[in-house]
Every structure is written in structure tokens, then in C-alpha cells.
């Protein structure tokens, strides 16, 4: 693991469009009530400390890290549920691929149950499903993993709120100020549009960026459906180091 270090202003990032992201306090999502800072964030350009960031080598990954169908299997049995390949490209705002960056993901099982000691939903646990994995993007910014489709689940927010099927994503990029956590939804799911957490995203076009598309061309025949989910990270303002540093 190491860093790409870019010099001051010319290697800087585009300012984050905070109106595109959810505001801190979103009353429909009640957990924000006591957790949303009330002061505005202090907007400053990134310094060297935020323009650098950790990177991770492909060799740090185990063979099953991106195979949620098998990576938690207790007895060789595969996870229960509709088999999926989820893949996509990590790009920056300049539409340039972000290679060699760590992507982590976690999700509920096919019944909508997380393997977590504080999770109380009555849907059954699958003994062979852990619900987490990771991948590193290739030289063209692509990641992929195998999993089962997560179930929708109820949660204590309003009286009867349900989360649409979703997968949580964490992405690094190459600068600490590019760090992003988001959630992926599934094309065609009517549950998306009634979810208070989805609804924290102000713009409908922003929500549509979170919806993975069914990709019939990349199905694994007689095995798994494919969904494509591209992720866009903040872009750098300069192209000057493109040939010198990978992943600028």
C-alpha cells in the first residue's frame, strides 16, 4: 500500500457539489436527527494531506474475496439466493478510469437478513453467507464480484418502512478526499421510490445514478444474471501528470 502524491493547486480536485449529495439533516431518515452536524462544513481546497491517499495492491486479495457465494461457506455449500455478477467501472468526473483502487461491498442475504449481532429481523440466516467482500479495479477501472441478490428488509424508521434490495459500497480512489460510501439499487425495483434513505438524495437524476442496470449480455449462461453499476469519484482539475502517475 502506498500513495500518489500530487502537488498543490494544479493537481487539485473539483469542488464537491454538495447539492448533489444528501444534506446532513434529512428528517425523513430519522437517524440523522442527532447525528447531522448543524454547522455548515468549512469549504477549503484540499491540501497535500487530502490529495494523497492509501492504495492497495492486487496481491493483497484472496481468491474468494470477490465471491460472496463462496467466501463464507462453512462446508463447501454455496450461498442461497438468486445468483448475480455485479460489475462496473470506477471513473472520475473527467470520465477517466480509476485503476487499482479498493472497492468494498456488504449486503443482506437473500431473505433480507444481515449477519450482525444487533440485527433482529426474523428472516433466516444462511449459514454459508457472510455478506461482504472486496475487489480492486483493473487497469481500466473495472471491478466485479459474484453474490446473491439481497432481499428487501423492514427497518425501524417510520412505522413500516422497507429498504429496497441494495448493496453497500465503499470506494477509495487515489486521494483521501475522494473517499466515498454509497448504495446500489436494482433496475426496475418499485421499492426504490418509497425509501426514506434513497429519498435523502435531492435530485432524481442523482438517484438514477445509484441504480444498477440489468445487463443481459454479461449473464453467465445457466448460472448468474449480471448487473452493471458504475461509480464516479471526484475528478482532478489537471491532466498534467497523466503519463507520469497511474490513476491521476
Amino acid at each position: 500500500m502506498s500513495a500518489i502524491i500530487l502537488p498543490g493547486a494544479d493537481g487539485s480536485l473539483y469542488q464537491r457539489d454538495m447539492a448533489w449529495h444528501p444534506p446532513a439533516h434529512t428528517p425523513g431518515y430519522k437517524s440523522t436527527t442527532f447525528r447531522a452536524p448543524r454547522h455548515s462544513m468549512l469549504s477549503l481546497g484540499p491540501t497535500k494531506s487530502e490529495l494523497s491517499g492509501p492504495t492497495f495492491g492486487h496481491e493483497t486479495l484472496g481468491a474468494l474475496d470477490n465471491d460472496l457465494i463462496r467466501n463464507f461457506s462453512q462446508d463447501g455449500t454455496e450461498a442461497i439466493g438468486q445468483r448475480l455478477v455485479v460489475y462496473g467501472q470506477v471513473l472520475d468526473e473527467n470520465a477517466r478510469a480509476v485503476p487499482n483502487t479498493l472497492v468494498e461491498f456488504w449486503q443482506a442475504n437473500a431473505g433480507g437478513r444481515y449477519r450482525h449481532k444487533k440485527e433482529g429481523y426474523l428472516a433466516a440466516l444462511d449459514p454459508n453467507f457472510g455478506g461482504f467482500g472486496r475487489a480492486i479495479t483493473d487497469e481500466n477501472g473495472f471491478y466485479s464480484f459474484r453474490t446473491v441478490k439481497p432481499g428487501a428488509y423492514p427497518w425501524p424508521n417510520g412505522g413500516n418502512d422497507w429498504r429496497p434490495a441494495h448493496i453497500h459500497f465503499s470506494v477509495f480512489g487515489h486521494a483521501f478526499a475522494q473517499r466515498l460510501i454509497t448504495q446500489m439499487y436494482f433496475e426496475g425495483d418499485p421499492m426504490i421510490w418509497q425509501c426514506p434513505i434513497v429519498g435523502t438524495v435531492p435530485d432524481k437524476a442523482g438517484i438514477e445514478q445509484l441504480i444498477a442496470r440489468l445487463d443481459r449480455h454479461n449473464t453467465t449462461p445457466m448460472d448468474a444474471l449480471a448487473y452493471r453499476f458504475d461509480i464516479v469519484l471526484r475528478g482532478r482539475r489537471s491532466t498534467m501528470f497523466e503519463n507520469r502517475l497511474e490513476g491521476n
Partner: peptide, 15 residues
């Protein structure tokens, strides 16, 4: 910039 950054979503209770 020609693309919009992917909107952030909460890490949730099971991060």
C-alpha cells in the same frame, strides 16, 4: 467535469 460524482449514501447500521 463531464460526469457527476455518485451521490453519497449512509454507511448504515451494519457498516
Amino acid at each position: 467535469p463531464i460526469l457527476k460524482e455518485t451521490p453519497s449514501q449512509t454507511a448504515g447500521p451494519y457498516v
